[in-house]
Design a protein around this nucleic acid. Structure first.
Length: 182
DNA sequence: GATGCGATTCAC
DNA sequence: TGAATCGCATCA
């Protein structure tokens, strides 16, 4: 998903940071303790959106993934804003583009993503004309060179904190935290 | 029923 | 460095 554009009702940007959470064997994944999350993975198809309230303050945006290699969630952590920036400045109340979507709670505020998005799909609109959202690749050109993805440790968790499952668009300044050196 | 804990952000 | 603030799981 790194390097694709996330479009959400007229706002959006290039996905520059994600984290992976695995259905099995990952203590940091909600499926490890939350019954609802386990049922969600079983019941829903790949591409279904999973939102939840973190710290009682911020909504976080995940996409359900499924494959032969295993199922899990992808947490969208940062975007490089490209679409509907006026609206996003307004929603965020900040005046620097870097402060719009450089964190999982920030980007949901900028895109107005909340509990009503839970259970909808990233690949299909729920009703024609509503919830116009999705991810797509921009056409390749000299303006958007080949995508380089780098892996880093996940952020802000205490369990399974060493898994290198944070993914960044290399050298992009709109991430929530730069690649740790080493 | 009460308690504890977060996949965070922002101001101090 | 700490407060804001709430759903969920666990325990009494």
């Amino acid at each position: 998903m790194i390097g694709t554009t996330l479009l959400w009702n007229g706002c959006g940007g290039v996905i520059v940071e994600t984290e992976a959470y695995a259905q099995f064997g990952d203590e940091a994944c909600h499926t490890f303790v939350r019954t609802q999350a386990r049922a969600f993975v079983i019941d829903q198809p790949a591409g279904t959106i999973y939102t939840y309230l973190n710290y009682g303050v911020h909504w976080l945006f995940n996409v359900l993934t499924k494959s032969d290699a295993g199922n899990g969630f992808v947490l969208i952590r940062a975007l490089q804003p490209t679409i509907g920036t006026d609206t996003m400045y307004q929603r965020r109340g900040r005046d620097r583009m870097k402060d719009l979507c450089s964190g999982p709670g920030k980007l949901t505020q900028a895109l107005a993503i909340g509990p009503e998005s839970h259970g909808t799909s990233i690949t299909r609109r729920t009703r024609p004309g509503e919830n116009v959202c999705g991810i797509y690749h921009e056409k390749r050109s000299s303006q958007n060179p080949p995508i380089k993805v780098v892996a880093d440790k996940r952020i802000g968790i205490t369990k399974a904190a060493d898994y290198p499952w944070r993914f960044l668009l290399a050298d992009n300044k709109f991430v929530s935290k730069p690649l740790s050196k080493g």
